[in-house]
Computed example of a mutant assay.
Amino acid sequence: MPETVFEPWNDPDAEPLIRFRNVTKRFGDFTAIDNQTLDIYEKEFFALLGPSGCGKTTMMRMLAGFETPTEGTIELSGQDIAPIPPNKRAVNMMFQSYALFPHLSVWENIAFGLKRDRMDKDSIAARVEEMLKLTRLEKFARRKPHQISGGQRQRVALARSLAKAPKLLLLDEPMGALDAKLRQDTQFELMDIQEKTGTTFVIVTHDQEEAMTVASRVAVMDHGRIVQADTPARIYEDPESVYVADFIGDVTIIEGTAQPRREGFYEMTFAEAQPGISAQSERKFTAGQACALAIRPEKVVISAEKPENGVNALKGTILDIAYLGNISTYHVELPGGQVIKAQTTNTRRLSRRNFTWEDEVWLSWSETAGVLLEG
């Protein structure tokens, strides 16, 4: 039987676990969240992504109950959560600092919330053992937080947050304190744990790679507004604005004006003495309308000779080369000053670099490679 794809947001009958309805949050004259409506579904791993001060932490703090909306409502399982105090919500929050009790063992840290809820001893023991197994911490149960590594402390915080089986777990920059390699491993662990427990996770991060790795959907935020909430693939391949295209991953933005050619195809004029760029787009543009083409470096082919069938073929000079082990990114400057990035994969171990600084090269890409956006 084919596996069903997890996409409740595309199912008109699916009931969201969380509903933000026209939520605004002001602090004095400052609007942190500006009239936002958003649905998050059960079992989702949802990421709020954006630069510092964009409102993502405020969204999370409202879910946790540390802030209340100035206007609008937030519902959890169909219930308005505004009157419910933080400790009575089926929501748990894992802080960036982990906030573990230094004098308690790993076992006792995980049991802490269960004891406060007056759960009986046997049930606590069973639940703690389950959490230790889930986070692979059985061997460290008797140790104190200072006797284990940063990655293990993070797993203790996660086990403690999940012990009370919340409907929703909020994670505030949970991997901020980990080094790059550990961070990567932990991302996959988090996804695994989220899948096993079926708990809805909402993560706040400014790390785009992290959001794109772990999340079922990503909400990109800017100045208190969600500019696009979509799957990582759609955010990367089909951004709805120059802001989203520019925020996620490596990209070249070429600004110009559109001229309709045939149905669904446009020619973009962008610089004097440069040929027009041909692009396919479902978005409608009028003649002379300002537009921008967002093109990813891996979609641009770099060659020494002019490609025979290159629809969009432009000549330039190599300005910079970034060698990243598995890939090399070339920054190529066109005569008018526009810089376009092109990427090649380094498949052979000691392949001789075909191009070097100040080489004249040709860049080309297909009509469907870039995304034409409003300028």
Rank of each mutant, 00 (worst) to 15 (best):
G65F: 05
G65P: 05
F66G: 13
E67L: 08
T68Q: 10
T68F: 14
P69E: 05
T70G: 09
T70Y: 07
T70S: 15
E71Y: 11
G72D: 04
G72A: 07
T73W: 14
I74D: 00
I74K: 00
L76S: 06
L76D: 02
S77H: 13
S77M: 15
D80R: 09
I81W: 02
A82Q: 15
A82L: 11
A82G: 09
P83K: 02
P83Y: 03
I84W: 04
I84P: 01
P86T: 09
N87M: 08
N87Y: 07
N87D: 07
N87E: 12
N87S: 12
K88M: 10
R89F: 06
A90C: 10
A90L: 09
V91H: 03
V91N: 00
N92F: 03
N92C: 11
M94D: 02
F95A: 13
Q96P: 09
S97L: 09
S97M: 05
Y98S: 01
L100R: 01
L100H: 01
F101R: 14
F101W: 06
H103G: 01
H103Q: 05
H103V: 04
S105H: 11
S105A: 10
V106F: 06
V106M: 05
W107R: 05
N109F: 04
N109H: 05
I110F: 05
F112A: 03
G113A: 08
G113L: 04
L114S: 02
K115L: 12
R116E: 15
R116F: 10
M119F: 14
D120G: 07
D120F: 10
K121N: 11
I124W: 00
I124G: 00
A125I: 05
A125F: 12
A125R: 04
A126M: 11
R127Y: 05
V128W: 00
E129G: 10
E129T: 08
E130F: 04
E130M: 06
E130H: 11
K133D: 15
K133E: 14
L134M: 15
L134P: 01
L134D: 05
T135K: 01
L137Q: 03
L137A: 07
E138T: 13
F140A: 11
F140G: 03
F140D: 01
R142I: 14
R143E: 10
K144I: 07
K144G: 13
P145R: 02
Q147A: 07
I148E: 00
I148N: 01
I148A: 01
S149Y: 06
S149W: 08
Q152E: 12
R153S: 01
R153A: 00
R153L: 02
Q154F: 15
R155S: 04
V156E: 00
V156L: 14
